[in-house]
Amino acid sequence: MKPMNAETVVLEEARPVEEELAARLIYDTGSYVFDCLYNRDFDAFLRITSHLWQQDVGAFSHRHARAATYQGGLAGIALGFPQSLYAQEFGTGMATMAEMGSPELLAHLPSVAGHIPWLFPEVPEDAWYLLFLSAHPQARGQGIGEKLLLDCFDRARKAGCVSLHLDVAAVNPAVRFYERMGLERLAETTVPKIAASHGVPPHIRMVKYLVD
Score class of each variant (00 low, 15 high):
1 M>T: 10
155 R>K: 12
200 V>H: 12
159 A>K: 08
129 Y>E: 05
61 S>A: 08
200 V>C: 06
71 Q>Y: 04
115 H>R: 06
35 D>A: 10
29 T>Q: 09
202 P>I: 10
33 V>E: 14
63 R>K: 10
104 E>V: 04
144 I>V: 11
155 R>Q: 14
195 A>K: 13
163 S>V: 12
45 F>C: 04
68 A>Y: 00
70 Y>A: 02
141 G>S: 03
143 G>P: 06
121 P>W: 04
6 A>Q: 13
91 G>W: 01
184 E>G: 14
55 Q>K: 12
27 Y>R: 09
199 G>F: 05
59 A>V: 04
6 A>I: 09
30 G>F: 01
83 Q>N: 14
82 P>A: 00
172 N>M: 03
87 A>P: 06
180 R>V: 14
32 Y>A: 15
141 G>M: 07
170 A>E: 15
132 F>K: 00
11 L>T: 03
55 Q>H: 08
121 P>N: 02
156 A>C: 11
84 S>D: 11
128 W>H: 08
211 V>L: 13
61 S>I: 04
154 D>A: 14
114 G>W: 07
156 A>T: 12
148 L>K: 01
17 V>N: 10
23 A>W: 08
101 G>V: 00
204 I>W: 04
180 R>G: 15
192 P>L: 02
9 V>W: 08
182 G>N: 12
125 E>M: 02
30 G>A: 12
149 L>D: 09
193 K>C: 10
163 S>W: 13
14 A>D: 07
51 H>T: 08
74 L>I: 02
207 V>M: 12
11 L>P: 09
161 C>W: 03
81 F>I: 06
105 L>Y: 01
45 F>V: 02
135 A>P: 07
200 V>M: 11
56 D>M: 07
31 S>R: 13
24 R>S: 15
204 I>S: 02
33 V>G: 11
139 A>H: 04
24 R>Q: 14
181 M>I: 13
205 R>H: 07
122 E>W: 01
201 P>S: 06
154 D>Q: 15
34 F>N: 06
189 T>Q: 03
17 V>R: 07
185 R>K: 13
150 L>H: 15
114 G>I: 03
111 S>A: 07
7 E>G: 02
82 P>E: 00
111 S>E: 09
194 I>G: 13
111 S>Q: 07
12 E>R: 09
85 L>H: 00
49 T>Y: 12
34 F>D: 06
186 L>H: 11
